[in-house]
Every structure is written in C-alpha cells, then in structure tokens.
Nucleic acid binder design. Structure first.
Lengths: 71, 71
DNA sequence: ACATATAGTGCATTTTAATGCACTATACTG
DNA sequence: CAGTATAGTGCATTAAAATGCACTATATGT
C-alpha cells in the first residue's frame, strides 16, 4: 500500500459513511488540520494517527508478509 | 493491530530471516537508533518508516474495513 | 447574488519522530 | 575470563508531525 492509496482508501471510506473531515477529526481525536493535511497528500502520519482514524472509521491496519506466489 | 502486536510481528519476521537490527537498519534505510527505539516499544513510527521496514522485510501494510461478521 | 457547507492553504507554535554517538547489558564462544 | 555480537539506553540535535487559527476555494442551494 502506497501513500496515495492509503489516502484514497480513507477518503473513500469517509465518503461512504457520509462523514466530513470535521466530523472525522472529532470522532477520531485527530486534529482537523492534521487530517486536512493528510488527505490533501501532504502528510506522513504516525502509526498512532492511523490507528485513531481506523478506529473511527471501523477499519484496521495490518502488516503481513507479501504473497510472492500471486501476481 | 495494536502497537505491541506490530512490534512483535516485525521482530518475529526479522528473527525468521536471521537479520539483525543493524542489518535491517541498513537494508531499509531506517536509522538504527529509530529501529532500536521502535522495537523496544518506545516508538510511534511514521507511515514512511513502516513502509521502509516492510520493503526490507518483504511485508506490506494494509488498511481495511473491519469484518464485523466475524467474532 | 448570497449564504452555507466542505475542503484546502499559509503561518506559527509545540511536541515528538528520526537520527548519531557513545555507553551499558546480555548472551554466546573461544 | 576475554572477546565478540547483538540489543537496549542516555543525551543531544535536526527535521518534521500534530496542532490551532484564520483565510481562501469550490460547490450547492435558496
């Protein structure tokens, strides 16, 4: 997952839930400025920030071994 | 995935590959001090740092909707 | 055209991640 | 026990993440 993909995934999920940046900022505990910066492609969020967003969006981060058999 | 789980996953993968912290730091481009701090539970790594480690370890980050059907 | 809602930006501050260096701690090995 | 390899820590610096405030940009609805 690249940075741009991560952004798109989160924006898509937020849109699907009809949640604004402001609402997500409140729900997640992440600062609005931080979220704006991140969604506009200017961020390099910390693990903690991604977790907070994930919690609010019903999503989760995973870290797994790449499947080399596929593709 | 919680912070402690992430640490364990990475340490386990590193051990499985017989790679030292120093080697992983070199391979990934992450500073040795950063890696030590992270593995000893004192870090809050950025997305970029996790990606670098993932690349070196043949792993990848994913961000997905939680499966609420499962228990 | 005006008002409203939402997203993005500029600027500044505070906190902290990333980093290096030197040191300590632990385990293994000759 | 001495030497080596590996992991963890203390201290300091630099870069950048997180944040707030105020502003601009864009779209939509009246």
């Amino acid at each position: 997952m690249h940075s741009q993909q991560l952004i798109e995934i989160i924006k898509a999920r937020r849109d699907m839930l009809n949640v604004t940046q402001e609402m997500l900022a409140d729900l997640s505990g992440v600062g609005l400025r931080t979220l704006k910066q991140f969604e506009s492609g200017k961020g390099n969020p910390t693990f903690e920030t991604l977790q907070k967003l994930g919690n609010a969006l019903g999503m989760e981060l995973t870290f797994t071994v790449k499947d080399v058999t596929k593709k």
